[in-house]
Amino acid sequence: MCHDCVAGGAASGASRRSFARFLAAGAGLTVLAACTPEAPVAVAPSSPAPVPTVTSDYTSPSAAAVESTTAAAEPPAQAPVPPSAAASLPGQFSLTDPASPWVVVNKHRPLQPADYAPADLVQPNVQLAVSGEAALLNSTTAAAAEAMFAAAARDGVVMTLASGYRSYGTQVATYNGYVAARGQADADTASARPGYSEHQTGWAFDIGDGGGACGFQPCFADQPAAVWVKANGHRFGFVVRYPWWLHPITGYYYEPWHLRYIGVEAATDMANRGISTLEEYFGVEAAPGYAGN
């Protein structure tokens, strides 16, 4: 558990504790995430209802952490944005082609085709915390990641590639494992459906901190790697894809470890305008849940 590893002062601690309380109250102590790379073990029908569990990636806040919270955090105000703020940029890319750096993948916008696989997967020359397909990115994202990791290292910050590409077949196994263990409703919050994950595009990956603290937990937001990348990622074309308190737009709770490449121009423009989500920036509808459900 990592409920007591928040750093950065009283204000930061209160906000993180409030986040833990929010998760517990609104999601039954399940961290809602887009990035689960490994299917859990199914629970037999005769087994008692399981307590909140830890997957290979995520740790749910403990009951003690929830009970110790006292303040409710307010979501940050989002500045109004035009139907497509990106229209002001000179270069335009497809929002539907999975080979495009601007493709928007969410619970309303599956990949087409659903079993898409990048043709240019490579292993970036960065510090890895994984192997196999999870260590791969498309070639453009890999080059940008190498430059970003090197810049962070020059600033004394060590980060790791914690989860990269995820094939359609891997997502099928992951999602089906969640359905078998917890039912579809819970699976739809804990694991992206096959064909609905940015990891399948090669444009997205998860980072870890070089010290290994708070991996895939809310307190990761206060670790050096997360703090550095939030402030500097746009210089290399990356955005934090699932920002704080914007799950009604993105469909996923805060994931300070999940980075998405959209190009330096677009990422910098988003930062300068104070726009936090791709849905708002590219003028597409919010996707809090799967369409039709």
Rank of each mutant, 00 (worst) to 15 (best):
M1S: 15
M1P: 10
C2I: 06
H3F: 10
D4M: 11
C5W: 11
C5Y: 09
V6D: 07
A10S: 11
A11K: 09
G13I: 05
A14I: 04
A14P: 02
R17G: 02
R21S: 12
R21P: 03
A25F: 07
G26S: 09
G26N: 14
G28R: 00
T30F: 05
A33G: 09
A33S: 14
C35D: 15
T36A: 15
P37I: 02
V41R: 15
P45I: 12
P45S: 15
P45M: 11
P50D: 07
T53M: 13
D57T: 09
V66N: 09
A72I: 13
E74Y: 01
E74H: 06
A77I: 02
P82I: 00
P83W: 01
P83T: 01
P83G: 08
A86C: 10
G91K: 09
G91H: 12
Q92M: 01
T96E: 15
D97V: 00
P98Y: 05
A99R: 14
A99I: 03
S100K: 06
V103C: 13
V104A: 10
P110E: 14
A114T: 09
D115I: 01
D115E: 10
Y116A: 08
A119R: 11
A119W: 06
P124V: 01
Q127N: 11
L128T: 05
V130M: 03
V130N: 03
G132I: 00
E133T: 03
E133A: 02
A143P: 01
R154Q: 15
R154Y: 08
D155M: 12
V157W: 13
V158N: 05
T160S: 02
T160H: 04
A162C: 03
A162E: 14
S163E: 08
G164W: 00
Y165Q: 05
S167R: 01
Y168N: 04
G169F: 01
T170D: 15
Q171N: 10
V172R: 03
V172T: 02
T174Y: 01
Y175G: 00
N176H: 05
G177H: 13
A180I: 09
G183C: 00
D188E: 04
D188A: 00
R193D: 11
R193H: 08
S197E: 07
E198L: 11
H199F: 09
Q200H: 08
T201D: 15
T201K: 12
G202A: 06
G202Y: 05
W203Q: 11
F205N: 04
D206R: 02
D206L: 03
I207D: 06
G210T: 00
A213Y: 03
A213N: 12
G215P: 10
Q217T: 14
Q217S: 15
P218R: 02
F220E: 13
D222G: 12
D222I: 00
P224R: 13
A225D: 00
W228G: 01
A231Y: 02
A231D: 08
A231L: 06
N232R: 08
V240L: 04
R241S: 14
W245L: 11
L246R: 14
L246C: 14
H247F: 06
T250F: 03
G251C: 07
P256G: 05
Y261G: 15
Y261I: 13
N272W: 00
I275L: 04
T277L: 03
T277Q: 07
L278A: 10
L278D: 13
E280M: 08
E285D: 14
G289Y: 02
